[in-house]
């Protein structure tokens, strides 16, 4: 095994995160169902959490609770974890907002399919009317 592969293997969480990110993006791009798009966004953000947490991790480290007696302990970086908690909150709120919007869209158009919405909108615009 070459050095490259060993580095990949050692840093597998990063690879994993990037893969997840790609999957998230792919989901957003290819699915016209609005719910699936929201799910895609969640996957994408999830990947970033993994990236952060992995970056803060130290092999063999323990939770950063100070133990004055044992000075040989290594701690994992606490900051990313704290931050990711915030990130998750943000992501939840974004998800909530988008779900609310999807509901509204469904109320206006009767569908949650982006292509369908576009078609309806184009038709209505062509007729010069407004959707209310």
């Amino acid at each position: 095994m070459g050095e490259f592969w060993s580095r990949i293997l050692q840093n597998y969480p990063y690879v994993f995160a990037l893969a997840l990110f790609a999957i998230g993006i792919y989901t957003i791009l290819t699915h016209s169902n609005l719910f699936k798009k929201v799910i895609g966004i969640n996957i994408m953000e999830g990947s970033i959490y993994i990236l952060f947490i992995a970056a803060g991790n130290v092999r063999g480290g323990v939770a950063p609770i100070l133990d004055m007696t044992d000075t040989t302990l290594t701690y994992v970086h606490p900051l990313p974890q704290a931050l990711m908690l915030t990130g998750i909150v943000v992501s939840v709120s974004v998800t909530a907002l988008s779900l609310a919007l999807i509901m509204k869209l469904y109320r206006f158009y009767g569908t949650v399919d982006a292509k369908e919405i576009m078609r309806i909108r184009t038709e209505v615009r062509a007729n010069g009317a407004r959707i209310s």
Partner: peptide, 16 residues
Amino acid sequence: DATSVEATFKYLMLAT
């Protein structure tokens, strides 16, 4: 209204 909600959704997706 429909247009603004739609615009918002698009905005939200892209912004996210």
